[in-house]
Structures are given as C-alpha cells and as structure tokens.
Amino acid sequence: MAIPTYPAKNNLSPLSSMKADHLALRVPDFNASRDWFIEKFDFRVIHQWPFGDLKLAYLAPAADDNFLIELIGGTLNTPRTKHADLSASLGEGGSHHICFAVEDTKKTLEELRSRGVKVVAEPFVVDDINCLLAFVSDPWDNLFELSQKI
C-alpha cells in the first residue's frame, strides 16, 4: 500500500513560507562526531563556529544543499540512553531518528557497513509506506534511517 496523495498545499496560510532547514544534533565530542559524519556519510562542513563553551557546525550530505545537520558539541549532563535494539528505542519520547532517502537501501547499508558504521536494523519492508528501511547509528547511539521507495 502506498502513502496516499498529499492534501493540497495551503499557500494562503500566513505560515506558508515555513520549510525544513536543519536538525540540531547534540553530541558529547564535537570533533569526533564531525569527523564521523565526514568519514562515514561523506558529509561536508558548510560552516563551523563557537558558541560559549560549545562548538557548532552546519553539515550537509554529499550532494544535497537542502537539508543540514547542526552539530552541537560539548559536555553533556545527560547522556543519550543506549538501547539493545530498534524496538527498545521506540519506547523513549522525543526525537527518534534522522531519515535519509536513498536509491538503494541494501547497497547503501553495504557501503556504510564497510566503513565500520554500526547496523541497528537490517533491511525490512514497511508495506504501509511502500519502503525498504534499515537503521544505523553513530558511536553516540543517534539513529539514522535509510529509506528506499519500492
């Protein structure tokens, strides 16, 4: 079953200029996390700056200038909960994962695995959205979904 057709856009809304720009990701080790995104996901550093005791950067995927991750690095008072598997992670509130649309989930996962990226969930089909999904994580247990339309 495919996702139904989207409702018509509401261009008359006073908020119609609102569009996704970036997602902020808080990590304990700025340099290691920035380097992980560069080495594992081929992300590009768009801009980097300090903010008090924190270090920040905008990171963009290899060939996409329309979505950024704002990396915020510095000491964490409350570390992220570590989960044994994907199902266990679904019981926690708040942001869960970042999804990246890919042309081929299996090939992308194979490449990430060759780069030492931790695989959390092997490819599986979700018929309700007509997608082949897989999940990986960074060393700080942030989850990333790979999604292929099928």
Score class of each variant (00 low, 15 high):
Pro7Thr: 05
Lys9Tyr: 09
Pro14Lys: 13
Leu15Pro: 11
Ser17Arg: 07
Ser17Asn: 12
Met18Gln: 09
Val27Trp: 05
Pro28Met: 01
Pro28Arg: 05
Asp29Thr: 04
Asp29Arg: 14
Phe30Glu: 03
Asn31Pro: 01
Arg34Lys: 14
Asp35Lys: 08
Phe37Trp: 03
Phe37Gln: 04
Ile38Ser: 10
Glu39Val: 01
Glu39Gln: 08
Phe41Lys: 09
Asp42Ala: 11
Arg44Trp: 00
Val45Ala: 12
Ile46His: 14
Ile46Asp: 15
Leu54Gln: 15
Lys55Asn: 15
Ala57Met: 02
Pro61Asn: 00
Pro61Trp: 09
Pro61Thr: 00
Asp64Val: 12
Asn66Thr: 15
Phe67Ala: 10
Leu68Tyr: 15
Ile69Trp: 09
Leu76Val: 12
Asn77Gly: 09
Thr78Pro: 01
Ala88Gly: 08
Ser89Arg: 11
Leu90Arg: 15
Glu92Met: 08
His96Phe: 14
His97Gln: 11
Ile98Lys: 02
Ile98Arg: 02
Ile98Pro: 11
Phe100Gln: 13
Ala101Asp: 15
Ala101Gln: 12
Thr105Asn: 04
Thr105Val: 03
Glu110Trp: 08
Glu111Phe: 13
Leu112Arg: 00
Arg115Gln: 01
Lys118Asn: 13
Val120Gly: 04
Ala121Asp: 05
Pro123Arg: 06
Phe124Gln: 04
Val125Gly: 03
Val126Asn: 11
Val126His: 12
Val126Pro: 14
Val126Thr: 14
Asp127Arg: 10
Asp128Tyr: 12
Asp128Trp: 04
Leu133Pro: 09
Ala134Gln: 11
Ser137Ile: 01
Asp138Ala: 03
Asp138Tyr: 13
Glu145Cys: 07
Leu146Phe: 08
Ser147Glu: 12
Gln148Pro: 08
Gln148Arg: 07
Lys149Gly: 01
